[in-house]
Computed example of a mutant assay.
Amino acid sequence: MLTKKRLLRCICGALISLTVIPAAHAQCNWPQWEQFRQTFVSDDGRVVDHSTPVHHTVSEGQAYAMFFALAANDKDSFAKLLRWTANNLAGGDLTLHLPAWQWGQRADQSWGVIDPNAASDADVWIAYTLILAGEVWQQPAYNAAGQLLAQRILREESRELPGLGLSLLPAPLGFDLVEQRWKLNPSYVPLQLLRWLAISTGDTRWQHMLNASRLLLLQTAPRGFSPDWVIYQTTAQQTASFSPDLQGAEKGMGGYNAIRVYLWAGMLHEQDTDRSRLLKLWQPMAELTGKLGYPPEYVDVHSGEPKGAGSTGFSAALLPFLKAGGHQSVLRQQMLRIQAQGIRPDAYYDQVLSLFGQGFLQQQFRFNPQGKAEFVWQRQCKREG
C-alpha cells in the first residue's frame, strides 16, 4: 500500500516526467535530478533500484548519479555518492580497488557485495566524472582519485586485441573467451569520454582505446542497429571479425544495452569528427522508430526485425540522436509520446535514460569537441553548490 508521502512523490515524479523543457529554458536548478535523488538515492548515497527483488545497487547507477550531481552542481550529493561507492563497492578505498558491480540483499538475507566483479562502463564514467569534478569544483583530491582509477581501468579492464588494438573489456573477469575470442559491449565506450580521458590524463593509451572503440561501433551494425553484445574473434590466419553474441540472453539482439549507443552518439559535439559517420550508420534506427511510433525494445541486428515496444525511457534516450540526425518529425513524435505517457517515476533505468536524454536537450550539460562536459551552472548560474 502506498503511503501518502510515497503517493505524492510518485505524482510529482510523473508530472516532472511529462515535461520536456525546451533547450532555451535550461534551469539552474534541475527538477528531474532532484526527483531522481529523492526517489532513488538513500540518505547515505546509495542508488537503489527498487524494481529488483534484492533492491540492488549497481556501480553503473552510482556512476551516473555522480555525473548528474555534478551537472546539477550538487556537491553534497556527489560527496555522499562517492563515499558510499568507495566504502561499499571498493573495500573502503576507490584508489586501491575497482568497485564491485552489484551490491544488495544476499541469499542469507545479509546485505553487501553480491558480485565482486567490476563493470568497466561504470568505472569509465566514475573516473571521467571524478577528474572533471576535481577541475570544475577545484578539488584536487577528486582529480587524483579519478586519475588513479583511470590507470587501474587500463591495467585491469583493457586488453590489446590483435587486429583491433587496446580495447575495453566489460569487466576484469569473464570476457576473455577461449580460442582468441573476446566478448565486448558497444554501449560501454562513449567516445567523448574516452577522448577527454586521453586529454585529461595525458596517457596515450586512452587514444588507442578510442581508436579501437570507434572500429567496434562502426563494424558491428551491418543493418544500422547496434547489438547489446558482440564477439570479436581472430584466427591463426590473422583474420579478425565481429559477430553478434548468439549465446547470451539477448541472442543477437540490440535492446537495453544498445539503446545507450544512440544516446552517446547523439550527445557528441557537432564538431566531433566521429559524429556524422555514426549518425549516418544508425539512421535505420531513427527510420524504424518513426515507422513504429516508438523505439523497439529489441531489434535483430542482422534482419532489422523489431520485437516489442521500448519504454518512454527509450524514447528519451533517442532524443539527442534524433535531433543531431535532423529527424525532426520523429523527434517531435517521441517528445509527444513522452508527454502523453510520462516516464515511469519508479523505473530506475528509464529515469536514467531520461535524465541523459532530456537533460541534454535542456542544455543542463553538453560535451565540447574534446569530449569535456560543460554545465549550465557554469555558464549562467551564480550560486554555490
Results as ranks from 00 to 15, higher is better:
Ala122Leu: 12
Asp74Ile: 01
Leu318Trp: 06
Glu297Val: 00
Phe67Met: 15
His208Ile: 02
Gly255His: 12
Arg223Leu: 05
Gln358Cys: 11
Arg83Asp: 13
Ser315Gly: 09
Leu215Thr: 10
Lys75Ala: 13
Gln139Tyr: 08
Ala122Cys: 14
Asp346Lys: 02
Tyr294Met: 02
Leu278Val: 04
Ile126Leu: 14
Pro320Leu: 05
Ile343Asp: 07
Ala119Ile: 10
Gly134Arg: 06
Ile153Thr: 07
Tyr298Val: 02
Gln102Cys: 10
Arg366Leu: 13
Ala100Tyr: 05
Leu166Tyr: 09
Tyr64Glu: 03
Gly293Val: 06
Thr129Tyr: 04
Arg159Trp: 00
Trp30Ala: 03
Gly359Cys: 02
Asn368Arg: 08
Gln271Ala: 15
Ile153Glu: 06
Gly357Val: 06
Glu250His: 11
Gly163Pro: 05
Phe375Leu: 01
Val178Gly: 00
Glu250Lys: 08
Arg83Met: 09
Leu2Tyr: 10
Gln219Trp: 00
Ile126Tyr: 05
Ile16Phe: 12
Ser77Phe: 03
Pro31Ser: 02
Lys4Asp: 14
Pro31Lys: 01
Gly290Leu: 03
Gly224Thr: 00
Pro172Gly: 12
Glu374Tyr: 06
Gln147Asn: 08
Leu281Ala: 04
Tyr262Trp: 07
Gln233Ser: 00
Ala373Trp: 12
Gly293Ala: 04
Pro172Tyr: 05
Pro31Tyr: 03
Tyr348Ala: 11
Ala14Lys: 10
Phe321Ile: 08
Gln380Pro: 00
Phe36His: 12
Ala24Pro: 00
Ala258Glu: 01
Ala171Ile: 07
Phe321Lys: 09
Phe367Arg: 10
Gly45Pro: 08
Phe365Ser: 04
Met209His: 05
Arg214Asn: 03
Cys12Ile: 05
Leu94Gly: 14
Gly304Asn: 03
Gly202Thr: 13
Gln364Ser: 14
Trp196Thr: 06
Val230Ala: 01
Val178Glu: 15
Val299Gly: 00
Leu184Asp: 01
Ser167Gly: 09
Pro244Asp: 00
Arg379Ser: 11
Gly112Thr: 05
Cys28Val: 02
Glu287Asp: 10
Gln207Ile: 06
Gln62Gly: 12
Ala150Pro: 01
Leu7Ala: 15
Ala90Asn: 03
Leu217Met: 11
Ile11Arg: 11
Arg6Lys: 12
Leu98Gln: 07
Leu246Cys: 08
Arg344Trp: 08
Leu96Phe: 04
Pro284Lys: 01
Arg9Glu: 15
Met285Arg: 01
Ile338Ala: 03
Gly92Lys: 10
Leu292Met: 13
Asn368Thr: 08
Phe356Gln: 08
Met335Phe: 00
